[in-house]
Each structure stands twice: as structure tokens, then as C-alpha cells.
Design a protein around this nucleic acid. Structure first.
Lengths: 190, 190
DNA sequence: TGTACATCAGTGAACGCGCGTTCACTGATGTAC
DNA sequence: TGTACATCAGTGAACGCGCGTTCACTGATGTAC
């Protein structure tokens, strides 16, 4: 039954991908390893051929999801004309589509309070990803001195994550949309 | 062993209070009923004399914590001169003290992603509390028309919750403090 | 290159454990007369 | 007001269940000669 090195690596990657989606959609504690492995097309026993423990998987998932978020954001700014990057990022992030697609969405909006309660290693990984996002946003504040741009970017990222998370709590569609819109305004029309 | 009606009511209230703190500090799934009842000075069996299930307790805790947050915020604005209310609220909310006191802090910062994943009943209770907070903040935007004030207040609340939550993920004290400060600036110096 | 053997990805059953919930029981409180 | 009985707050053991983790096993892959 042994698999090729490449096949094994592919399997490992599939587990991380699947976990990344499941965790963001249903939470970390709420996602069991047997459910997760089944979703990846495997049986639970195989998990420990790839990861030392669930905690180790969580760390890897955190890094993976952060990379995905940064990559997505980069793509959005790169495809945009000068001074339009921030608008593209914010419009995509604070969209109803993003609000309704938790499994594919921002890890911070999906797992914010879970991450805040996680261990040091996990939080450090998340914090690193968060700061890469902040730096990316800061680059969009082209007409500000770097320090000021970074400060603005921190507030912008906090607003984006907060507004999306809050919009996911509110079930009334009009109200939820109004929350997203209010944050978009605050960021883009200062 | 039967207790007085008043004693029973006091016990029930103590369970809600204890759960309210434990949930915000460690999460809902992460807080077991036996641990919770022990912290309230009782044994686990007694839980079901007061609540139909853990989910019912969660709803009650959510309402309780929302009330606590609204009351605290009201106190802060009431004790302030005209046009200073918003600053008082924001300075308290986005303080390092609030960041470091999760058990007594804002329910949304403590349980944001957990609430977003909760059932309809719980989310509706949370959304109602959230909107009371928004209304309270909107009252502080005295020089804006009501609709505009409410829209501003929604963004402000989203920023506050987002920034506090993010600041709790980041372990580096200087960086964490900078995040809080950046959000304060964005809200108070527009 | 061919052969013999060690490695290890993946299976599926089993482990102990803590979870939410139920239950029989105790005995003081509340109620009906 | 006094008495008899029903109620029910709280105890502590037990329930089934799903959790993360371990294990013996299979058999194709990788490696050493």
C-alpha cells in the first residue's frame, strides 16, 4: 500500500487544504480528525503518517491560509492601476460573496477568536501573516510617509476583519450589507 | 436539600455569570459543563435543574454579556461632557487593560468567530446586542444626520471589535499596542 | 541491472478520556387542607 | 396556625458517544548490494 514520495506529498497537501477549508467553515475544535480525513478521501489512522498531532496540523493550516490570503490580495492589487489597488482589495474583501463563502475566505474572519485563544506558536504564525497583509495594504497608501501608511493600514485591516466578522453574525441581509458598506466607506472615503 | 426560590434564582444567576466569564476567556466548546459547574461551586448534575441544555445556556449567556457591554458603554458616555463620550468609549474599549482582561471584556471580541458559527437563535441575540451598541455609539455623532451617524457608528464598532480581536492575536506588546492606537486614531481623528 | 530487504503510506480496529445528558436519590421548601 | 404531602434544588454515579491517538497489519516503494 505504500505510496510514491510525490503521491505522499500530494496527500499531505490535500489534508492541509481540506483542513484549511473545514476549520474556517466550522471551527477548529468543531472539526474532528476522522471527519477531516474522510473529507480528504482517507481513513483516520493515516493522519499520523503526516502530522505529529492535531496542533501541528493547525499550525500548518494557519500558515497555509495566511499565504492564500496574502496571495489573493497581491493578485488584486497587481491587476490594478495606480491608486486603485486599495479599492479593489476592500471591495473584494467586504463583499457579500466573501461574507457568504467562509470556507474559501479570510482565515482571520473565519477563526479570529479561536486564534486569539491559541497557543504561542499558532498565534505567532497568524501574527506574521497578518503583518504581511498590513504591509501589502500599506503599499497602497502611496501619498503618505511609510510610518503613517503602515499605521493607516493597521486600522484598515482591523476594520476589514472586524466588519466581515460582524456581518457574518448578523442574519438580516440588509443590515449585514449595511455593515459591509459602512466599513467600505470609512476606509475609502476618509 | 431543596433551596429557597431566591437561593435558586441566585444560583442560576451565578451559573450564567460564571459561564459568561469562562466562555469569553476559553471559548464555548472549550468550556465543559462539569468544569463550569465546579467553578460556580456546584456539581454537574444540578445544571439541568436550571437549563434545558448547554445551547440554552449559551443563548442566555449571550444576552447577559450583551447587556453587560451595553451597560458599561452607557456608563462611559453618561459620565462624560458633550462630544467627549465617543473618546471615552473608544479609549476604554481599545485599551491594553481591555485587551488583557478577556473574561470581563466585550463578548464580541471574545467570541466573534464562535458567534458567527452559532445557530440562528444565538446569532439573533448577539445581533440585537450589537445593534444596541451601534445605536449608543451613533448618539455620539451629534453633528451628523441620524442616518449618517448610524452608518459611521457601524464602521466604528466594526473597527473597535476588529482591532481588539487582532491585538489579542499579536503577542508582541509594542505591535499589539500599535494596532490599538491605529484604530483609536482612525476613529477619533477622521 | 537484478535481487533481497527495509521502509513507510494508508487501513481499520481499538485505546482511554472527557463530553453532554440522564437518573435515582436526599431532604428542605412550598402548598393544600 | 399545624400537619401531611408534593415539589424540586442539588448530589454523585452512570450513560452513550465522539474525540485524539495508538497499534498491528498490508503491500508497494525505495534502497543497498
Amino acid at each position: 500500500m505504500r505510496k510514491t514520495k510525490e503521491e505522499a506529498a500530494k496527500t499531505r497537501h490535500r489534508i492541509v487544504e481540506t483542513a484549511s477549508r473545514k476549520f474556517r467553515e466550522n471551527g477548529i475544535s468543531e472539526t474532528g480528525l476522522s471527519e477531516l480525513m474522510a473529507a480528504a478521501g482517507l481513513t483516520q489512522g493515516g493522519f499520523y503518517r503526516h502530522f505529529k498531532s492535531k496542533d501541528h496540523l493547525v499550525d500548518e493550516v494557519c500558515a497555509h491560509s495566511c499565504n492564500a490570503l496574502v496571495d489573493t490580495t497581491k493578485t488584486e492589487t497587481d491587476g490594478c492601476a495606480e491608486r486603485k489597488g486599495l479599492k479593489a482589495v476592500v471591495d473584494n474583501y467586504l463583499s457579500e460573496a466573501h461574507r457568504d463563502d467562509r470556507a474559501d475566505g479570510c482565515i482571520f474572519a473565519g477563526l479570529l477568536s479561536d486564534l486569539a485563544r491559541s497557543g504561542d506558536t499558532t498565534r505567532d504564525i497568524a501574527a506574521k501573516g497578518l503583518m504581511r497583509l498590513v504591509d501589502l495594504v500599506a503599499e497602497q497608501y502611496t501619498d503618505e510617509p511609510p510610518k503613517m501608511a503602515r499605521q493607516r493600514a493597521m486600522a484598515t485591516v482591523a476594520t476589514m476583519i472586524g466588519a466581515l466578522s460582524v456581518a457574518r453574525v448578523v442574519r438580516d441581509p440588509k443590515l449585514s450589507a449595511a455593515i459591509l458598506e459602512s466599513a467600505r466607506r470609512q476606509i475609502l472615503c476618509p
